[in-house]
């Protein structure tokens, strides 16, 4: 089983992610235990829960960013379309290319222009494209991220010359340019104003047909607006985080099974 998905295949499909029994440690401290979660292809899954319960950690295990922290270890299994991502069936760089990530703080590459930022992923993962393809890619990705009209005359400016919201959309465009099958987003709107937030939520809805989205958010309205499914994480004091409940977003918000979920989504704790 190899990763021979044609690069930039226009007809590529969103992929499903399955996490089974995932536990994580930082050093000897266990921060996540026995997480099972199915992230179906083409759907938006929201991860919610109070601060420090391990949402970011879980998200980072999904594209092998977790192991970059020196003391970090994990157990369990994560499959993309049925293929294990940790045991060498797919090279780690391909895993990360297929499962993209947008970070909490916008982080465009400072030494690159707007246009260069969009196609940075091609350079970084060694994909060759013709000039026409590249120009097309720049335009289509920026359009998908809802940024094209704002920056089409500023493609030569440094990436950091944009506003925070624009930078974040640039980062989304950058992730989309390598045609990921899954896009992980860690509180992508937490540093943004309501307008930019709306714009990004719209982007998420638009791309979710071709990309599976997993998003961490502290904003309950946002979770309701954008996600199809929802997973509620919780960590008791001095214990690792777990999934308390997961299911269709509507269910989680209208009649949750667990009282703790009910409390959380109604803003009664955390």
């Amino acid at each position: 089983m190899s990763s021979d998905i044609a690069l930039l295949d226009p007809g590529h499909k969103a992929a499903g992610l399955t996490a089974t029994n995932v536990s994580c440690w930082f050093g000897t401290k266990k921060v996540l235990e026995g997480v099972n979660l199915d992230m179906a292809p083409g759907q938006v899954t929201a991860l919610i829960g109070p601060s420090g319960c391990g949402k970011s950690t879980f998200l980072r295990t999904l594209n092998r960013m977790h192991e970059l922290v020196p003391s970090a270890t994990l157990a369990g299994e994560i499959l993309i379309d049925g293929v294990d991502i940790y045991r060498g069936a797919i090279p780690v760089t391909d895993v990360r290319r297929r499962i993209g990530m947008v970070f909490q703080k916008p982080n465009p590459f400072p030494a690159m222009t707007v246009a260069e930022n969009v196609v940075a992923g091609l350079k970084l993962s060694g994909m060759k494209v013709t000039r026409a393809e590249r120009d097309h890619l720049i335009e289509s990705c920026l359009t998908k991220a809802g940024l094209w009209n704002e920056v089409k005359n500023r493609l030569g400016d440094p990436g950091r010359a944009l506003s925070g919201g624009q930078q974040q959309r640039l980062c989304i465009a950058r992730s989309l340019a390598v045609s990921p099958q899954v896009l992980l987003m860690d509180e992508p709107c937490s540093a943004l104003d309501p307008t930019s937030t709306r714009r990004i939520e719209q982007t998420i809805s638009e791309i979710s047909e071709t990309v599976t989205v997993v998003i961490v958010t502290h904003n309950m309205q946002q979770a309701q607006r954008v996600s199809h499914r929802c997973a509620f994480f919780l960590a008791a004091e001095n214990e690792p985080g777990r999934i308390i409940e997961e299911g269709a977003t509507r269910e989680i918000f209208s009649n949750p099974v667990d009282p703790r979920t009910n409390d959380y989504v109604n803003g009664r704790f955390g």
Binding site: N63, M65, L68, T93, D94, V95, R96, R97, R98, G100, M101, F103, K105, N107, F109, P110, A120, G121, K123, L124, S125, G126, C171, R174, S175, V178
Partner: peptide
């Protein structure tokens, strides 16, 4: 964060 962003795009160490 920049390194992570690059790796998350599928970048190799060298690139």
């Amino acid at each position: 964060g920049l390194r992570e962003a690059s790796l998350a795009l599928g970048g190799t160490e060298w690139r």
